[in-house]
């Protein structure tokens, strides 16, 4: 398997991670009343891969 196919093959992982992050960030920005400070969630989402967005969706979102 050459380098290009490999990168292409692994692209989905990157895309899903990025999508989760962007999704969570956009939602955080629109969220009028998150459970905790916005900046903290922003850092969580961007810095902690996968877990950050999940934590935000489960705990931080507060279902507005």
């Amino acid at each position: 398997m050459d380098q290009t196919t490999l990168i292409l093959a692994l692209l989905p992982i990157l895309i899903i991670q990025l999508a989760l992050m962007i999704f969570a960030l956009v939602d955080l920005i629109k969220n009028p009343n998150p459970n905790g400070p916005k900046w903290m969630w922003g850092i969580f989402i961007v810095v902690i891969n996968i877990i950050g967005p999940i934590l935000y969706f489960v705990i931080g979102r507060k279902n507005y």
Binding site: P12, I13, I16, A19, I50, F57, R61, N63
Partner: peptide, 21 residues
């Protein structure tokens, strides 16, 4: 509307891909 229908599958797909990769 709380996006569970998107992010829960996303997590499982990630878990599924990560192991072989």
């Amino acid at each position: 509307r709380n996006y569970k229908i998107y992010w829960i599958p996303a997590i499982f797909i990630l878990l599924g891909i990560t192991e072989p990769a």
